[in-house]
Nucleic acid binder design. Structure first.
Lengths: 146, 146
DNA sequence: ATTACTTAAATCGCTTGCGATATAAAAAAG
DNA sequence: CTTTTTTATATCGCAAGCGATTTAAGTAAT
């Protein structure tokens, strides 16, 4: 019965979808203290590594469209985390730069990774879930590697 | 330098976040033909397996809050895919049932899994990405299993 | 030089996702 | 049999996320 696949498939793609949201939830309490969201945190990680990047480069790194990233950056600008200015060489480009506040957040974020790890140990997202997720990925990889 | 972790960590959580969106994007063209979205498709998969389920059970299966699932189900009701009615035994519960149209969609969706597989082979989401994602998960599992 | 094409951001309209809160029914406590 | 607590849904406001379209700057073609 081909309908069976409509269940099996659930075990391939749904776990990734669920894990993504569970991970974001785990980050939330730490990011709340910095007053940012998970996507904003990702933007900051990019700028902490290389400041002064065009909107499009950030969008590509995060695999997001400009219609998602533009309003996101505007909100960050409004919060005083980043500045946006037109590039001199190419007037089409908008360069995104960290403000002093944006750079200070790096220091505050420094402990998040290890705090998150210990939180994950007690949270909703259990190791078993991740192992299941990994098995799903294995199936998907086998499927695609045929 | 503890700042290094702010890069490493990117390699743990970001791939899951990115994969989730890439997978949804791959589904989109197939689901467009059925006139539904990916979360709606997940709801349908649950109801195809067991029709007539309370809102809360669907929410739990998808790990979504009712404030997400309620409007989602209302939109599906508006499209004529499902019916919602108060339970007789427990007036708090709202039972969600497939309409004829909702059941017909199962037949139309039957070929999605295999079509998706072949599409993934040519799409943005490459096997290499999945393998990287799996390695990230391995790291995370090792981290959590210490 | 003018026209056509491409690229970079932005805007619009819609769905999803969630924290906080509200409402009402059912269950537990007194 | 009231009062309190819990449970099931729903509502509100806001931040993503994306398809479709727009605007403006840069590039290539004629």
């Amino acid at each position: 019965m081909a309908y069976e696949q409509l269940k099996l498939e659930n075990q391939l793609c749904f776990p990734v979808y669920a894990a993504s949201r569970l991970i974001t939830r785990e980050y939330q309490p730490f990011l709340d203290r910095l007053g940012i969201t998970y996507p904003q945190y990702l933007v900051l990680m990019i700028l902490w590594e290389e400041d002064g990047m065009p909107v499009n480069d950030i969008a590509k790194k995060l695999i997001l469209n400009t219609n998602t990233i533009t309003p996101l950056l505007k909100r960050m600008e409004h919060q005083g985390i980043v500045k946006r200015k037109r590039s001199g060489e190419d007037e089409r480009k908008v360069i995104v730069q960290l403000t002093a506040k944006g750079r200070e957040l790096q220091e505050e974020a420094r402990m998040i990774p290890e705090k998150l790890a210990s939180r994950l140990l007690e949270g909703d997202l259990k190791v078993d879930d991740l192992i299941r997720l990994k098995e799903s990925l294995d199936s998907m990889i086998r499927l695609l590697s045929r």
